[in-house]
Design a binder for these strands. Structure first.
Length: 115
DNA sequence: CCACTGACGAGTG
DNA sequence: GCACTCGCCAGTG
C-alpha cells in the first residue's frame, strides 16, 4: 500500500506527550524525512478525522495552528483540544514553543522535563 | 511532461 | 517580531 511512509509520520505524532506540541519539521525529522515538513502536513491532512492520531498536537514552526480552509473550524477544534490538555495560547492564537515545545525544552514553568 | 496548489521551513531585511 | 523570497515534495488537471 502506498501509505507506508505515512504510517511513519503517524507513529511519530502518536508518541507526542500530552500537554506538548511538535512542529512539522520536528515530526518530519523524527519520521526520517528531514526537510520534508510539507509532506508531513500533507499526510496529516490526508488522514481521516476518526484516526486515533493526536494531529492537534502538530503545529508549524511559528507556534501557530494552520487552518485547513474548507473544514468546519478545524483550527478552532485544534486550539480547544490543546487548551484542554494544558497548552496555553496567546492573544494571537500562538503557543510558546519555549515552554510547550516537544524535546523537553527548558520548561520555564518549573515542571520537570520528561521524555 | 508541465503548471499550479498546498496543515511548511529557513534565510534575509 | 513581521513580511517577502526561495526551496522541498506530492497530488491533480
Amino acid at each position: 500500500m502506498p501509505e507506508g511512509d505515512y504510517e511513519r509520520i503517524y507513529a511519530v505524532v502518536r508518541r507526542i506527550p500530552k500537554g506538548r506540541v511538535a512542529t512539522y519539521g520536528q515530526v518530519a525529522e523524527l519520521a526520517g524525512l528531514p526537510g520534508h515538513a510539507r509532506q508531513v502536513g500533507y499526510a496529516l491532512a490526508a488522514m481521516s478525522e476518526s484516526s486515533t492520531v493526536p494531529w492537534h498536537r502538530v503545529i508549524n514552526a511559528q507556534g501557530a495552528v494552520s487552518a485547513r480552509g474548507p473544514h468546519s473550524g478545524g483550527a478552532v477544534t485544534q486550539r480547544i483540544r490543546l487548551e484542554h490538555e494544558g497548552v496555553e495560547f496567546d492573544a494571537r492564537g500562538r503557543v510558546s514553543l519555549k515552554e510547550f515545545g516537544w524535546k523537553g525544552r527548558a520548561n520555564a514553568r518549573g515542571a520537570k522535563a520528561r521524555e
